[in-house]
Design a protein around this nucleic acid. Sequence first.
DNA 1: CCATCCAGTAAACAACCGTTCTCTTAACTT
DNA 2: AAGTTAAGAGAACGGTTGTTTACTGGATGG
Lengths: 214, 214
Amino acid sequence: MSHTLGVRQAQKQKTRQALLDAALGLLAEQSLSSLGLREVTRVVGIAPAAFYRHFKDLGELGVALVEEALGSLHVMVRAILAEQDGAEERIDRTVAVVERHVRAYPLHIRFIARERHGGVRAVRQAIADELDRFAEEVAAALKSQPVSEGWRDDDIRMLAELYVDRLVTTAAALLDADEDGAPGAADQVVLTARRQLRLISIGRQHWQEEGDLS
Amino acid sequence: MSHTLGVRQAQKQKTRQALLDAALGLLAEQSLSSLGLREVTRVVGIAPAAFYRHFKDLGELGVALVEEALGSLHVMVRAILAEQDGAEERIDRTVAVVERHVRAYPLHIRFIARERHGGVRAVRQAIADELDRFAEEVAAALKSQPVSEGWRDDDIRMLAELYVDRLVTTAAALLDADEDGAPGAADQVVLTARRQLRLISIGRQHWQEEGDLS
DNA sequence: CCATCCAGTAAACAACCGTTCTCTTAACTT
DNA sequence: AAGTTAAGAGAACGGTTGTTTACTGGATGG
């Protein structure tokens, strides 16, 4: 198999990817709803009209960016969830993965954090859907752990959402810390993230004891 | 005292407020970096050039909006923190306050959620600073509670950040649920938020026990 | 009462925008 | 080899943008 795909389509996908890359670069310092079509094509080096051969909208390009941005993180965390080590080790490894990912794809993280509540409805929706699937996977992984014995399904789900949310927030904070230039800022974020996850983990272990007073 | 302030300055503050209101309204469906100066003045009904009598920038207007948006929530939560009831009651009341606040000032919440990672540096910074002061206040309140006996200061701080972050996230989620039109969505968010706070509270109570295995 | 101040007006500016055409040219099909 | 397809070029369009200028007219304070 592996049909050579044709010179034609190959070139098309190449400039399509160039459009995505250019847009992602520009979005490091502005938001999608203020991004100009001409601005993007100018960076790529093609005529403005050529844009329409690939996307009918900047919103459509945005949705494509969402898939690209969340795809890689998706597999990485899935790998972590499959592991079977202790809670403490898992926390350390999770945070380490997030840290590495932020360093490897800072523009992707920026984009997601920025457009999650941004001005383009379609993109917001795409991110929400993707994060939802993400939470569902986390929930499935949590459920198969012995600590979750006797948990209600929606309690597992709420815990999964708490985790996912924390990962996204941590990634964004880490990014901010990195570009602030302050030397120890990033390490501080990592430390805080680990302890927050630890606290959540502790809460999880005592969740079923019920009787809680001030 | 209460000097009548002068007809002159009163009128000026009036149109200044009108500019803020108009901008906030427009920002319900776009982000600050795509908002046009003329767009705002058109809504208010004044000439574009008159804008410069009040702000030199749309960024400056944005910073003013940050103060307006976070000011009210600030006092409300401060009131809650001062209370001395049990953990469970405090959680319920906190979530209730957030819910009421979202309903009362939805545009403020939208704005904060959107511009927290938005495209205008000055506004991002203003929000970060404000949320930082917020976390500091929460930390102070947490410290004076008996549960915090023997806690390290930076552990209290990390808990405070966890709480603040959760409130902001919950507010944004609640807003999304409201405008989605789905009937039970908002209640679901409230329920989830309460349980997440409860889990964090449980983790807090067992924080010092240390020994945790999977 | 009169001179000063200043919030807002009106017009003009060059720069940029998204979108629509027609045309070219190279890759594909048969 | 001839005919078809489609990515991209290039120019033109009406419209909007931020900013600057000179101005008006009513509140302000001596």
